[in-house]
Design a protein around this nucleic acid. Structure first.
Lengths: 189, 189
DNA sequence: AGAGCCATGTAAGAGGTTACATGATTAG
DNA sequence: CTAATCATGTAACCTCTTACATGGCTCT
């Protein structure tokens, strides 16, 4: 309990991710429909929606569920059907719901997260309607734009023959094309 | 010894990476000048060339050196200066040299490796002259091009309203811009 | 009767990070 | 004399992955 509250405070402070992408994904999947481990696993399986975005082994999934329950973000209830081994059906707690909501609103910080965490956020935000998606994309565009400015400022200070320049340049080009892609996506929304 | 040979065979078979990027980087640094751990550390330190490309903790560095020595890819000789604690100066073995050369020639497989492993290869290949760099970049352009074709083929089979389509599209755009960057770099060589 | 699905977990190992431990030399 | 630098390592911990263990149910 108190651990979960501490988590929320941290979030208010610096807005950093306190869970792994997989853990947020689980919260997202539980937002509208409670489920047990095996059901969740299907979302990450070869023909599930999240394949390709986020591979998640079965062992990691059950580990994540236990961890989320420990932190008071989800709550499990045992359900029995006949003589089968009991399954634990999980649902979000208020804390979990808050944490998910704050994660969904926040754009990702690093460029490489755009192709993973950001797409994940889009996936769950879609269920909140187009306006929510637009606002997330806008926030991400701003974040990428700022990142790009920082890179360009750094590049200006470096000798173009230096290896470091090549590295920065590579990142700059990646940031620009990510920005282009985001804007194009935004345009179509 | 026999371990190292097995490694070489594996390489000939499927051309997969058998070492971590950090380990290859160490081989690369040792190619022309033998060095001890503390010297190598400087290359990864805040003002070293490889900062930003490959962060490497000191504990990991010494761990990697031990592992490379175990595999017979580098060989260490103890050196003493006065009463100071002895330092171990490492140099490449013939096996290590072969493994490095084959890694340097090979383009990276995954898109996300372009911004790390590939730049690393460029860094070391530069010391072999412009022709070597050109040939590496050409190989990488081909690899990316093939990857892009595969993505486009997959995208054609998917319903554009599906979330998976968005994922593939994101990758496609990343692949295209990587390819653009590579070609632009190649043009300037 | 056997294959495959439902459903959950443990165990072992690899790899990486943080922190600590050691101790001499050099610069200010 | 004190701080920084030289130089190497160990120990505890965390996470992730692979593999195995369990056992009932459903369909053919």
């Amino acid at each position: 309990m108190s651990t979960a509250r501490a988590v929320i405070y941290e979030l208010d402070d610096d807005g950093a991710d306190v869970l792994t992408p997989a853990q947020y994904a689980i919260l997202g999947l539980l937002e509208h429909t409670p489920a047990h481990g095996y059901q969740l696993q299907r979302s990450f399986a070869p023909d599930g929606d999240l394949t390709g975005v986020l591979p998640l082994e079965q062992a990691s999934l059950y580990g994540a569920l236990k961890e989320l329950a420990n932190q008071g973000l989800i709550q499990g209830v045992e359900a029995r059907e006949g003589l089968r081994p009991p399954k634990t059906v999980y649902q979000l707690t208020p804390d979990g719901r808050r944490l998910l909501a704050s994660w969904l609103k926040r754009p990702v910080e690093r460029l490489r997260q755009v192709r993973l965490d950001f797409l994940l956020k889009i996936y769950f935000t879609r269920k909140h309607g187009r306006r929510a998606v637009r606002s997330l994309v806008d926030a991400q565009v701003s974040a990428c734009h700022e990142y790009l400015s920082q890179l360009e400022a750094r590049a200006a200070e470096i000798d173009p023959d230096d290896f470091v320049y090549l590295v920065i340049e590579s990142r700059t080009s990646a940031a620009r094309s990510t920005l282009d892609w985001l804007r194009e996506y935004r345009r179509r929304l």
